[in-house]
């Protein structure tokens, strides 16, 4: 009985400490995450507060115009629906095309030494062309419509994905490759279980780079010629010297970039759960 009581008290204290440390840890994490950004924003706010500079309006003014500029009423007529949503949809469409084409081609090229040697110089050349340079050329073929923008985004996003997939497939553990061969894994099973799995951390790396290039191209394709879009709006504000509105657009573009990268992280964390778990187990469960 004493033993049982002692045990119960023991566990009680244990849980209490655990709860306290968990709460402490969460608080600590929140502080760490919010601390520096809060300081930066505060410094910007204070430094720009009395700013009379035309190009560098006070942050309070920028924040004030933010709502009116992007979320005016009625909502379906606001710039957010008219400009931001089409931009993001074009980005996602181009990105999806690049992802599929890049991974398929990448596995094909990465798994055949001869094919890799044949295609590499040409791919290197196309990869090396700065994608924005293709905008004037694609404008010749496709005009200035939506399809031009999607193709621009897709061609820009393709190369990092393709290259990383090739590298990932090439860098597979030779032992695993030989094991797959020794077990006479079928072609489909080899691609699915060995190549895609083994290369997936690399593919994710490529996809992450592609996402940032895609956002750049989303904006650039609209800066050349467009009737709507986030990039178009920002340039329009700049050309008409609507400076606080321009800054609000720059901030919104940043926020869009951050949200997309958070979404990307959520998707890849789920897809790469096995890899992260493997790494974590190597770190001794920390």
């Amino acid at each position: 009985m004493t033993g049982a009581a002692r045990t119960r008290t023991g566990t009680g204290t244990g849980t209490g400490t655990a709860v306290r440390t968990t709460a402490g840890r969460v608080l600590r994490q929140v502080l760490l995450a919010v601390g520096l950004p809060a300081v930066v924003v505060a410094v910007w706010w204070v430094l720009s507060a009395g700013s009379t500079s035309y190009f560098n309006p006070p942050l309070s003014v920028i924040v004030g115009t933010f709502g009116d500029t992007w979320f005016s009423t009625p909502f379906d007529q606001s710039r957010f629906v008219q400009d931001v949503v089409p931009s993001v949809l074009r980005l996602l469409a181009g990105y999806a095309v690049a992802l599929v084409v890049g991974v398929v081609l990448g596995v094909a090229i990465g798994s055949s030494r001869a094919f890799r040697a044949y295609a590499e110089p040409v791919l290197e050349f196309f990869r090396a062309i700065p994608p924005p340079v293709l905008v004037p050329i694609l404008m010749l073929f496709l005009g200035i419509g939506t399809s031009m923008k999607i193709v621009v985004i897709a061609t820009g996003c393709l190369w990092p994905i393709l290259l990383n997939t090739v590298e990932g497939v090439r860098g597979l553990d030779p032992v695993l490759r030989d094991t797959a061969r020794a077990y006479r894994l079928g072609r489909v099973a080899t691609v699915r279980h060995l190549m895609l799995r083994g290369a997936s951390p690399q593919i994710v790396t490529g996809a992450r780079q592609a996402l940032s290039i895609g956002i750049i191209l989303m904006v650039i394709s609209e800066m050349f010629a467009a009737k709507d879009g986030l990039g178009f709006s920002i340039v329009q504000f700049q050309r008409s010297f609507a400076i606080p509105e321009m800054w609000s657009g720059v901030i919104l573009l940043g926020v869009v970039g951050v949200l997309l990268s958070l979404a990307f992280r959520a998707v890849t964390d789920a897809a790469l759960g096995w890899y992260l778990g493997y790494r974590q187990s190597q770190h001794g469960g920390v």
Binding site: Q29, L32, G35, L36, P37, V219, M223, G231, I234, G249
Partner: peptide, 26 residues
């Protein structure tokens, strides 16, 4: 690392072309 993580994560995806109008003005 812990202090800067969120800031790096926030600033990194900010597309550099967003700075074009700002750069032109400055």
């Amino acid at each position: 690392r812990a202090v800067t993580a969120s800031t790096v994560e926030f600033l990194r995806p900010v597309p550099s072309v967003a700075l074009i109008p700002v750069a032109i003005l400055l």
